[in-house]
């Protein structure tokens, strides 16, 4: 009997080993471990044996049952794995096929530049001030030391609505408004981005509508060296660490002294080329120390307070940064143009 069990076990293991399908394996399970299987048959015979022999047979048949069932379990796992593997093979996809992409939207280039500049100045403690685009002559000109009939008004030919109302020609009136709000108390540290309008015919270098960002800092100890340091930091952040600035005297009615600020040419780094007309520098913004009359009109005592102001054009910055050849592109909105730019 024991011998018989042993040989059954060997045959069973061989059958299991050779088995190829789960269905077949299930049949083997019934055949060897089922109620009518050899092990069960052997167990049935136990009641006729003496204690010692019964014990031995019990032991051996249990062992045999365990061995076969373990073999079946293992085989089953093996066969199942084979099935899954086969299925996974069939699941193959070419990962290099194009994806199903929904395009991301793109911010307008001018706004990308404005946002970058805003964040830069917020980091230096500047707030962002805003004001109306339809302004009064008073805020747009008179508060900025440009009384009626002043020749410098020619520098900014304006779109008037009535004698007193016009489209602002710069964002400086926001500075005037902010100063008045302060009630003569410093510090003031703002930038004012926004749309401005000049009575110009549109061409490659002129636009009747464009953007400006002005900055204003007023406190008791603001110097022109502070202006230079601030603008140098700005230029290096926007145009690159290796760029240098220089101040060149200029004239604005609202600042004294007034300067044009040049940055070393991106193309030749200052040695002179066609882009910078051999000067090595490109003009990027105007700046100066706030004129005492402007401080006074804004409610600040020029004996106590001094300040600096600067104004720049984000479109001009973009033009210089990307070598754009026509300012009208900013307003045409050909998406092939708009979607080219992605600032850091």
């Amino acid at each position: 009997m024991l011998k018989q069990l042993k040989s059954i076990c060997e045959i069973a293991l061989k059958d299991i080993e050779e088995c190829q399908e789960i269905k077949q394996l299930n049949e083997l399970r019934v055949k060897y471990l089922g109620k009518k299987g050899p092990i069960q048959e052997a167990m049935k015979m136990m009641k006729d044996l003496d204690t010692e022999a019964r014990k031995e047979l019990g032991l051996v048949s249990n062992e045999t049952k365990f061995t076969i069932s373990t073999a079946i379990e293992n085989k089953q796992k093996e066969l199942e794995n084979l099935v899954i593997e086969e299925q996974l093979k069939n699941d193959f996809i070419d990962v290099t096929l194009p994806s199903r992409k929904r395009a991301l939207g793109q911010a307008h280039l001018t706004n990308q530049i404005i946002t970058e500049i805003e964040d830069l100045f917020i980091g230096m403690g500047y707030s962002i001030a805003e004001g109306p685009e339809i302004e009064t002559d008073h805020y747009n000109f008179e508060m900025l030391n440009l009384p009626k009939g002043h020749p410098a008004r020619d520098m900014q030919d304006s779109f008037y609505i009535t004698e007193e109302l016009l489209l602002r020609t710069h964002t400086s009136p926001v500075q005037a408004r902010t100063m008045l709000k302060q009630g003569g108390k410093g510090p003031v540290k703002i930038i004012c981005p926004g749309k401005v309008y000049r009575r110009d015919d549109d061409d490659a270098t002129h636009s009747h509508q464009f953007f400006q960002i002005e900055g204003l800092v007023i406190d008791k100890n603001i110097t022109m060296s502070d202006l230079k340091g601030t603008l140098e930091y700005f230029v290096k952040k926007i145009f690159g660490e290796n760029r240098e600035i220089r101040f060149r005297p200029s004239f604005f009615p609202f600042t004294e002294p007034s300067v044009e600020v040049d940055v070393t040419c991106a193309k030749c780094s200052g040695s002179g080329c066609s882009m910078c007309k051999n000067s090595g520098y490109i003009e990027i913004l105007g700046a100066g120390m706030v004129h005492p009359d402007v401080l006074k009109m804004g409610g600040f005592d020029p004996e106590v307070y001094q300040g600096f102001a600067f104004g720049m054009g984000p479109e001009r910055i973009a033009i210089l940064k990307y070598g754009i050849d026509d300012i009208r592109q900013f307003y045409t909105n050909d998406l092939r143009f708009n979607n080219q730019f992605n600032l850091k």
Partner: peptide, 28 residues
């Protein structure tokens, strides 16, 4: 202030220092 401009433009703007305002403000 007009005289200050005369002084610095003849003396040379390249001789200005490069400093940041000492004003402390926070902004958001």
């Amino acid at each position: 202030e007009d005289l200050i401009e005369e002084i610095i433009r003849i003396y040379g703007y390249d001789k200005l220092n490069k400093t940041l305002p000492q004003t402390n403000t926070v902004a958001s």
